[in-house]
Design a protein around this nucleic acid. Structure first.
Ligand SMILES: [Mn+2]
Ligand SMILES: [Mn+2]
Ligand SMILES: [Zn+2]
Ligand SMILES: [Zn+2]
Lengths: 139, 139
DNA sequence: ATTCTTCTTTAGAATTATTCTAATCTGTTG
DNA sequence: CAACAGATTAGAATAATTCTAAAGAAGAAT
C-alpha cells in the first residue's frame, strides 16, 4: 500500500464521515487540502494547483466542492479581500494576519488573541462569530 | 440662503480642502454622504439613492468618487462581504457589527473594543490596522 | 454483473460587482 | 471668454463566482 492510496483512504474516510460521496474529484481535493499542514486557498489558486499536478477537475467542481466542504465543517471561509474568497483548512478558533500585497493569510492562534469589550449585539441578534484581521504591509 | 446651498457650501469647502474639484457630481455625493449621521454605503446602493432623488450621476462616477473620497481620507472601506464593497463615512477608530442577513453594518466605538495579544507581525512587516467584525444573526 | 436511481461533474453561458476606454463635457485660470 | 487640464459617462471589458442542463459515475437493488 503506497503513499497515494494511504492519502486516499484517509480522504475517503473523512468524506464518508461527513456524508459526502467520495468521488474522484472530492477525494483528490480532500487529499490535497488535508494531507499537509493547514492552508488557505482560493478557488482559482486551488484549481491551478490541481491542473499543475495533471489532475482534471473543472473550476465549477472546485467551487462546488469548497462550498460543500465548508457546509460539512471541513473548511471555513475567511473574508479579508473584497475581490476574492479564501477557504481555510483550519476550522478551529483562530484569527489572521493578512498581507495585502501578497494576498497571503497567516494564522494567529485563538488563544493568543483576546477581544474584549464587544457591546451587546442589537436586539434580537446573537453573535455568530468575531473575526479579527490584522492587516500588515511591508515596513 | 436655503438649506441646499448651505449643504453645498459645506461640501464644496470640504472638497476644496482635500484638493478635489467641486464638480456637480462630487458636491451632490459629498452632501448626501456627509450631511447627516455617519453611514455605510455600497456603490450600487448610493447610486440608487441618487437616482431616487432625481439626480443624474453615472454608476462609474459613483465608483470613481467613492474611491477618490477614500484616497482623500474622507471615507474608508470596510471589508465584511466577499461580494460587495462598503464605504464608511466614519474614518475614525472603530469596529463593526455585521448583520449578514441584512447586509447592514453598525459601528462599535473604538474605545469600547480592545484587541490584545496580537503577536509580532512577520519579519519585515508592520501592522497597518486591526479590523474586528462581529458577525451577528437573528437569535 | 446488470440495471436503476440518485448524485455529481462539467462546459459554457449567465450574473454581479467593479473597472476600463475613449469620447464628450466642465471647472478653473489667464 | 478661450483654452486646457481634469472629470464624467455610456458602454464594453474583466474577474470572481454561480447557474444550466446534459452527460457521467456511485451506490443500491436485482
Ligand atoms: Mn468582483
Ligand atoms: Mn461565495
Ligand atoms: Zn486560518
Ligand atoms: Zn463604520
Amino acid at each position: 500500500m503506497g503513499k497515494a492510496s494511504r492519502d486516499s483512504s484517509k480522504a475517503i474516510a473523512r468524506l464518508r464521515g461527513v456524508g459526502l460521496r467520495p468521488t474522484r474529484q472530492r477525494v483528490e481535493l480532500a487529499s490535497l487540502l488535508f494531507k499537509g499542514p493547514d492552508r488557505h486557498v482560493t478557488a482559482e489558486n486551488l484549481h491551478e494547483e490541481v491542473a499543475g499536478l495533471g489532475l482534471k477537475i473543472s473550476l465549477a467542481t472546485v467551487y462546488n466542492t469548497l462550498h460543500q466542504f465548508t457546509h460539512a465543517g471541513l473548511l471555513r471561509q475567511v473574508i479579508v479581500d473584497a475581490a476574492r474568497g479564501y477557504f481555510d483548512t483550519n476550522t478551529g478558533d483562530h484569527q489572521h494576519f493578512f498581507l495585502e500585497a501578497e494576498g497571503t493569510l497567516i494564522d494567529i492562534p485563538g488563544e493568543d488573541i483576546r477581544v474584549a469589550g464587544v457591546p451587546a449585539p442589537p436586539a434580537g441578534m446573537t453573535v455568530d462569530r468575531v473575526d479579527v484581521v490584522v492587516r500588515v504591509k511591508r515596513a
